[in-house]
Amino acid sequence: MSTTGSSNPEYVNARVRARRAALFNDDEYRKLVRMGPAEIARYMEESEYKREINELGSRHSGVDLIEYSLNRNLAKHFNDLLGFSEGRIYDLIARYLRKFDAWNIKTVLRGVYSEASREEIDTDLIRAGEFDESFINRLLEASTIEDVITTLDGTIFGDPLEAAFEDFEETGVLVPLENAVDRTFYEELLADLPSSEPIDLYREFLEAEIDFRNARNALRLARSGTDIDPADYFIEGGQLFKARELDALVQDPEQLLTRIRDSSYGRELSGPLDELEAADSLIEFEHALESVLLKYSRRLGNVYPLSICPIIAYILMKEREVENIRAIARGREAGLSETEIEQELVIL
């Protein structure tokens, strides 16, 4: 578990492939959609999630049990990934998994801001990133926003957060801090990537992810009709948009859609874009974006079987599985019909 020394992509890929085979397939989803929360928990107990369900079964129940087990299982797998990878491959995986560090920091910030108890914050964390247990405990012990930021000093998030802290003190809302965390994550993601053919494709994939995120934010802003400055939410590093143009594009949704259609993603997205124009439903378009990204990562994994690409594909698929099961469980709890739940799922 270090960034120096030789890399072991073969070993990591062999393990990742075995784990990928353990993910739920369409048939299992179809079965799950017809079950109630208790049945889903029982079904999960007989699968990959056995240990987590048993561990958490005494403390939580119903949909909460499912959700916390899912998160814990996700964290276990991703920690394993970081644990057995070495050298360059570790660096590449860690870059992506810092997403969860960012998530945890935001959760802690929000928890401290809303004065939630330590246990409440604790259950919402996903311990999948690079931060280890003792560091997360130190974060949880912080009682003010300032403490949290001081604790983060020395990590990649330290300096940007300190810079954003002034804004926070002036405005009293968390948005500047959260934006600083997100932006640092994406900047670090693409910074100093070494150059080789699979890694160039990896970079292209990350850029696509950033583009899609920007597109989604822009569409949401355009829909909501609020006067928030889109540049605040803009993430650098993508190919599709520039910060300057985004403002004009958000004002004019037609032009925004044309822009996406004319881009290099146009071919894959043309179906969903037509639907978006016809049905006016943003959710389906967002799901379509996700599935395009998933397919993209899977294809990369097939092109370069012994590189970072299949590992990233696995990470995405695992995240997707967790979200799908959560959607099923929450949907069943809320009494949605099977077709409505199926619309919420992203299955390849």
């Binding site: 072991n8 073969e10 070993y11 990591v12 890929n13 062999a14 393990r15 492939r17 075995a18 784990r19 057995f84 012994l306």
Partner: peptide, 14 residues
Amino acid sequence: RAIGAAAVGAMAEN
């Protein structure tokens, strides 16, 4: 070297 690493990885899973 590569095959052995992958084989040990697969064995660790199954």
